[in-house]
Simulated scan of single mutants.
Amino acid sequence: MRAFVYGVFYRLPHPVRRRIVRTFVPKYIVGGVVLVRDSEAPAPGRLLLLRQPPGKGWGLPAGLLQRGEPPIVGAARELAEESGITVDPRALTPAVPNAVVHAKGWVDMVFELEVPASTTVLEVDGAEVYEAAFHPIDDLPRLTLSTQRLLAYYGIGPLVAPDDPTSWDRPSAPSHDG
Rank of each mutant, 00 (worst) to 15 (best):
L64D: 10
F9K: 05
V36S: 11
S118T: 12
R19F: 14
D164W: 06
T120V: 03
V33S: 10
H14W: 13
G32E: 10
W168V: 02
L159F: 11
A152K: 05
V87M: 00
A76E: 07
P174F: 09
V160D: 06
L47F: 05
V36K: 09
V8T: 08
V129L: 00
R22M: 10
V121K: 01
K104H: 13
D138P: 03
L145W: 12
G7D: 11
V100G: 01
R2Q: 12
S39F: 13
D88L: 01
G45N: 14
R67G: 05
E81H: 05
P26I: 04
P70C: 07
P42D: 11
R11G: 11
V96Y: 13
S83L: 01
A132C: 02
L35P: 09
I29S: 03
F24A: 14
P141N: 03
D38G: 06
A3I: 01
E114G: 02
E40P: 12
D169G: 15
V30Q: 12
V124D: 03
Y153E: 06
R67N: 09
V160F: 05
D88A: 04
A117F: 01
T86Y: 08
A103N: 13
P165A: 09
K104I: 11
L12T: 07
E131I: 00
D164G: 08
R17E: 09
V121S: 00
H176Y: 04
A43S: 13
D108K: 10
R149N: 08
I20T: 08
R46M: 06
D139S: 08
R149T: 10
D177F: 02
P136G: 00
G7T: 15
E123Q: 03
P26M: 04
G126A: 07
L151Q: 15
A75S: 02
L151E: 14
Y6G: 10
V21E: 10
W106C: 09
G155P: 01
R19Y: 12
H135M: 05
T93M: 02
G32S: 07
P116I: 03
P116G: 02
G155I: 02
R51G: 10
P54S: 15
D138Y: 01
G57Q: 03
G126I: 06
P171E: 09
V5A: 06
E81N: 07
A103C: 12
A95N: 02
G59H: 15
